[in-house]
Design a protein around this nucleic acid. Structure first.
Lengths: 259, 259
DNA sequence: GCAGTTTGTGCGATTATCGAACATAAGTTC
DNA sequence: GAACTTATGTTCGATAATCGCACAAACTGC
């Protein structure tokens, strides 16, 4: 029996079902009914209901009439990770410092499946927020964001076709690249340049930049920032330079060692 | 059959066990062995192992030799909550704005069981970090922090003795209040004053302030800030005023409606 | 009020889970 | 290196927990 087979034999199907219920609350809607939950998880209605009621009992979900929604207690799970890795001490101040230099928010992200996963973010107080209100734990599209493009550029060539087809490209704006060939070319370009830039592909009027945190032998990790097009002030070279300094500061950051 | 009994009958014991494994990774240690995990959860070793291997299979845990640790994927669970409630749009900018006024970081928190749970924290760059590196999802002590004291002041009188005894007071510094009577008195004082202040009780040399977000009929919610003692600059009245303005701005915040 | 949809519940078949016992591996001390 | 201790991996059968079906109750929209 190989290690994979042994691992599969030791997997608890019921725990998986419970986690699937929890993961179905992915932030797209405020709450879900049992029928929606059963559809989202593909589980029998009665099974999904039992999973949900268990999570209610544990305090991770609350029930309001027919709707179920996550409670703040789920933040503890993320806190377990963030605290164990000392993000608050070692990552957040780095992002905060460079974001102040740059005058716009900075985001640290990696690839999780077919999405960009936001690990940390420094947001500033300015009259007009640049982003959609993303937070730690937010998913962004892999294909049409600068973060995602840069993350794809960190992948091995042979992995790209599958990643690109697994993340079918809905077009967010008229400017979003449509064909896998175009996307592949822009990934190649990002790799050659050492940075990725997208212009209005995900959010109209928003220019995104991303650079890699160079860590050979580790999972791809990137930092990025956005500006509103035409905002002036911060030019491309200065932005890239600051992002690269930030990436350099994160290079041997102990909080990121385990990623 | 009452609603409680019906809920208990529909609870999945196996899902509970799997969640207990996940919750055992509470950030206190970087990783845990199976033996530690079995002890932490009180489960039979083989059961804890199956739970852990299931979570590894799902991507929420990783195994490194004998140690298991959380992966960044757990941030998605928190992201589900933060996104569903629009924290990034509606809460973060409020905290950041007032933190800029105040010149120190501001924290939003509520009570979760016997702990303070950090919901959000401003991300501005201040010259000197005041805190221990707390993050979203961090737990703080209920009894010896200004946040915790203010949260206790939001509780009904008859609930206080149980809450105080459930959170046995380790003393963090020489200045930490030791006896339940002293703690109760300071909670009473916080209630009368409309703010809580602690001086060196949790972190030596750190003065903490907290004020409630007034929301009758809702769970207690507080905002707080810390200063290093002797730092000058920011006086007490100005700090309290800013915290109170921040609390007022959060009073009818739609992101916090469901709490 | 009616039709359609959703939720709650009971029940028994059966499947998944459990933990004991044993084997193997790793770590510590001398 | 040997002996001891601790930890991990595996197998297996008893059985407890889970499952999903069917029905009842509740809700929603016209």
């Amino acid at each position: 029996m190989s290690q994979d087979e042994s691992a599969l034999k030791s997997v608890s199907l019921t725990v998986m079902k419970g986690m699937a219920v929890l993961a179905a609350f992915d932030g797209r809607t405020h709450s879900m009914t049992l029928a929606e939950l059963a559809r989202a998880t593909g589980q029998d209605r009665a099974t999904a209901r039992r999973g949900a009621l268990t999570l209610v009992q544990l305090g991770y979900l609350q029930q309001n009439g027919r709707g179920f929604s996550l409670t703040p207690k789920v933040l503890l799970i993320a806190g377990g990770f963030l605290q164990a890795n000392r993000f608050g001490l070692h990552v957040q101040p780095v992002l905060n410092g460079h974001a102040e230099t740059l005058g716009t928010e900075i985001t640290l992200a990696l690839r999780e499946g077919s999405d960009v996963l936001l690990l940390a973010q420094s947001t500033l107080h300015h009259g007009r927020p640049v982003s959609f209100g993303f937070t730690v734990g937010s998913r962004l599209p892999l294909l049409h964001t600068s973060l995602g493009r840069m993350l794809l550029a960190c992948e091995a060539d042979e992995a790209l076709p599958d990643l690109i087809s697994a993340a079918p490209p809905p077009r967010y704006t008229d400017l979003s690249l449509a064909s896998p060939a175009e996307i592949t070319e822009s990934i190649r370009q990002a790799r050659a340049d050492g940075y990725a830039m997208t212009d209005g592909e995900f959010e109209a009027g928003i220019v995104g930049f991303a650079v890699p945190v160079s860590r050979p032998g580790h999972r791809g990790l990137v930092v990025g920032a956005n500006v509103a097009r035409g905002a002036g002030g911060t030019d491309k070279d200065r932005m890239l330079q600051t992002l690269q300094l930030c990436a350099a500061d994160l290079r041997r950051n102990e909080a990121l060692e385990a990623l």
